[in-house]
């Protein structure tokens, strides 16, 4: 498979992916027919200078993969995302990133105050391509506006970021990731505070990106939602499990992930049971 140029409604979102990356699971032999992973980790541990916050994390993400990152608050989800972003260096193991990475941070209070427009935020995505002494010019502006149009916010480009709705803010951040040519998207609790309809719209957008060859990792505490993703990574200071939700999300794994008692509701058919956490786990703000 040669260098891919993936287009999302006329917008180029991916550069060529190198093929010669060693596959982590291939036992040394690389399989040429499968796409090279966007990123993989081997026995990764990460900390903030003191003891490691997460240990023994081993997974890989290939183009088109949508991974749900499941774990309790304080279980290390955000730490893993920051390591993938390059913001935290690993304290042990291997982390290999072979794609441009973009993060969609939680839009908490401090960012709502920020005096920027949707266009300003999208423009931030162009900075990685410019040397530090160059300011974004006309071409970059065009690109940012295109990306905003792609996520359906073309007419709100000049609106203040903090005045947009939660779903719109997430889409602005996705537009920024598009401008960045990011092929690996990291989302930290993107659905918290969104109503069902807005969540659905965001989900569709992410599905579309994945079908174009992007990898998507979504940190969440919502077990029900994770069922929709291709893969799930359960994390509670160490990696509990990694695999397709259908086979991975057993009540044993969930108990290990969340510690406490799990309420299990029998599912229909022979798939996994629907699992609902005790209510206090949903109090996440």
């Amino acid at each position: 498979m040669g260098a891919r140029a993936v287009r999302l409604r006329g917008f180029e979102v991916a550069r060529g992916a190198r093929e010669s990356v060693e596959k982590p699971t291939g036992g040394g032999a690389s399989v040429a027919t499968e796409p090279a992973p966007l990123a993989f980790t081997r026995d990764l541990s990460v900390g903030y200078g003191g003891p490691a916050v997460i240990v023994d994390v081993t997974f890989n993400i290939s183009p088109g993969d949508r991974i749900g990152l499941l774990g309790p608050n304080g279980g290390g989800k955000s730490t893993l995302l920051r390591a993938l972003l390059g913001d935290l260096a690993p304290s042990g193991g291997v982390i290999n990133i072979d794609a441009s990475v973009a993060a969609l941070p939680q839009t908490e209070r401090s960012r709502l105050d920020y005096p920027v427009s949707a266009l300003d935020v999208a423009l931030m995505g162009t900075l990685s391509r410019l040397p530090w002494w160059r300011r974004p010019g006309r071409a970059e502006r065009r690109q940012a506006l295109d990306a905003l149009a792609t996520v359906g916010l073309g007419d709100l480009a000049l609106r203040t970021f903090g005045e947009l709705s939660g779903g719109q803010r997430q889409r602005v951040l996705i537009a920024r990731a598009l401008v960045q040519d990011a092929r690996l998207l990291l989302l930290d609790e993107p659905f918290s505070g969104l109503d069902a309809q807005t969540s659905e719209r965001l989900m569709t957008l992410l599905d579309e990106l994945a079908s174009q060859g992007c990898g998507v990792i979504v940190a969440t505490h919502d077990v029900e939602q994770v069922q929709r993703w291709d893969l799930v990574l359960c994390l509670n200071h160490h990696q509990i499990a990694f695999g397709p939700p259908a086979t991975t999300l057993t009540s044993k794994v969930l108990e290990a992930t969340y510690g406490g008692s799990i309420v299990t509701v029998p599912g229909d058919g022979d798939g996994p049971s629907r699992v609902i956490l005790p209510p206090h786990h949903h109090d996440h703000g």
Binding site: A103, V121, L127, Q180
Partner: peptide, 11 residues
């Protein structure tokens, strides 16, 4: 705006 993404944003 986004200090955690600074590295990924090319800053």
């Amino acid at each position: 705006f986004d200090p955690e993404s600074a590295t990924a944003l090319g800053l």
